[in-house]
Design a protein around this nucleic acid. Sequence first.
DNA 1: CTATGGCCCTGGTTGC
DNA 2: TGCAACCAGGGCCATA
Length: 282
Amino acid sequence: MPELPEVETTVRQLQPLLRGRRVQQARVHWLRTLGGQSARDLAQAVRGRRVVGVRRRAKWIVIELDPAQDPDPAIIVHLRMSGRLVVLPHTQPAGPYARVSLRLSDANSLHFLDVRKFGRLRFTRDAAREFRELGWEPLAPEFTAEVLGTGLKTRRRLKPLLLDQNVVAGLGNIYVDEALFMAGLHPEVPAHGVRSEKVVRLHAAIQSVLHAAIQQDGASFDAFYRTPQGQPGRFQAQFQVYGRGGLPCRRCHTPIRRLVVAQRGTHICPRCQRAPRRHGGR
DNA sequence: CTATGGCCCTGGTTGC
DNA sequence: TGCAACCAGGGCCATA
């Protein structure tokens, strides 16, 4: 599933293919991808506008358009489960999963492909405003261990907290499991009970797993995530726990366990990540 | 405040 | 072999 590293890889590869081109036409093949925006509004808003850059905010891809009179105009894209962005020559069909296609002023089109239709693409006049509720960028210099520690001052359980995009923005199921393993923390411990030296470890784990995954162009363990150039990521080879239920822990050889936390498949080493004490047990 | 469960979707996997 | 039931999963919303 695309999370921060996969989105970052997509942004980096898209940038040289899009910057400087104009959007000539928008075609919508699946309306709900626009999340309520009308196909006409999208088409009218983007027609003729130049792409001035491509950036990332959390798991959002931000295709920046020339300002005109808007504060921060952009086409914003969330890949959710199975979304992909690809750039193909006009003449090449995008296949049955194309949900939105943008014809560019060079010989190419940008297609948003999405098998499961959970992804979103729409125009906004003010991208920064759209994202103001989002939490910390985990790779930004301002996101320090101290800042993370402040975010952990809550009774909520650790994993659901880290998945909350309004706290830390960009982590998903895979990288949370990997970071918790690296830090030796159980996903169900109350966040406020994590001691400060463990907070430091967790902060380092989050940053290092994200950096490592970006270096490998993200992770592809199913049919879905591919870079815009069609290549799978390579980080899945370095998963320590995710998807490794029943396999031996790479550190201590205890079998990795799969549990469900907040409706999410969750992978831990029961020895490296001690279970929290259950209160109210009887 | 925190947690839970449903919803959106479809292809792949499992079960009979 | 054939087919139906089941499942994953991010974000959002309603409910407990």
